[in-house]
Amino acid sequence: MATTAWTHERLEQLRQTRVWRSIFRRGPARTNRTRSLAVFGNLALHVLPVKVREKSLSVRATYYLGSISFFLFVVLTITGILLMFYYHPAVPEAYRDMKDLVFVVSNGVFLRNLHRLAAHAMVVAVFWHMFHVFYRGGYKPPHEFNWVIGVGLLLVTLFLSYTGYLLPWDQLAFWAITVGTNIVSYVPVLGRPIRFMLLGGHIIGQNALLRFYVLHCVILPLAAVVLIAGHFWRIQKDGGLTVRDDHE
């Protein structure tokens, strides 16, 4: 107990320092008001609600599917960035780099599998989240627009999954992208030009690999971050989650 008291005292001293006070301007969160202010005043937390109904925190209300999807997105971002250190989006290297990650790089196979499994899990989690919200009626007013953002996030998740599929540059990837981009060319009038722009040519080659890489690592994750921030923020602005009375 003496150590706890000592730690509290040191923490209290730390809180009084000028540096600490310059970062956390509002002082310790001891009252409801200062706790609320702490959430409002934090860049990462201010998109989240300051207060939630206790019911909406129960497992059965959400099964935490949205949080699980977000957690998987964070896992995918971290493992993806680490994989980028060894991967060249170039035609002879891409496949070899993938094989190097599996057989040569320390813990490479762990990271690659983590990325791959988390990607599959994220698609499952996002779909499950959508079905759960649908069957709970969570799309109803005032949550209509957040449902629309959610559909955007579902599409971004699927596009991320699809663009990532080409990157190992193996036969599975090649034919999946052949079939997928041919589906695109069935779009009326614009189909062929869209396919040409997506592949950067007529065939699935170097240009296509680089474009899918940039989409996968930069454009789509940025879109996801923007949509996720909007999605979280709207939960707060729409007055919290839809919770039924029989959820206790």
Partner: peptide, 10 residues
């Protein structure tokens, strides 16, 4: 810009 003018295809 995204539609290449020169392609290095077979």
């Amino acid at each position: 810009y995204s539609s290449p003018n020169v392609l290095f295809e077979p």
